[in-house]
Amino acid sequence: MIEERITNLEIKLSFTEDLIEKLNQIVYKQQQQIEFLYRELKSIKEQSSAGDGAGGGSLMDDIPPHY
């Protein structure tokens, strides 16, 4: 009976270790995605601020004259 309990615990431990490893991989991939998105957002903000100095105005300024 004790050996059966130990075997069951070992099985649960094995599954738990596998789950932790999978979750660790997911967290790592998500961190990579967050860093990529952060760099993209930073680049977009820099482009936007650079465009503001070059004649940027309100959206009303972009409306064609026939409106």
Rank of each mutant, 00 (worst) to 15 (best):
E35Q: 08
E40H: 09
L37P: 00
F36Q: 12
I26M: 07
L13V: 06
N24V: 02
L37S: 13
I26Y: 02
N24R: 06
I34M: 07
L37R: 15
E35R: 10
Q33M: 11
Q31D: 08
K42G: 14
Q33G: 08
Q32E: 15
L19H: 11
L13G: 03
L13F: 07
Y28D: 08
F36K: 14
F15S: 12
L41G: 08
F36I: 15
Q30S: 14
I26K: 04
K42I: 11
I34R: 08
E17P: 00
Q30R: 04
L37A: 11
Q33P: 01
S14H: 07
L41E: 09
L23T: 03
E40I: 14
D18P: 00
R39D: 12
E17A: 14
Q25W: 02
K42A: 15
K29Q: 10
K29G: 00
Q31H: 09
L23F: 03
R39E: 13
F15C: 14
L23R: 06
Q32W: 13
D18F: 04
L37V: 08
V27H: 02
E35L: 13
Y38I: 11
L23C: 05
L37C: 13
E21T: 06
D18Q: 11
Q33S: 12
K22P: 00
L13W: 09
L23E: 05
Y28F: 10
Y38S: 10
N24D: 06
K29V: 02
Q31L: 08
I20K: 01
I20G: 00
Y38G: 10
S14G: 02
L19Q: 07
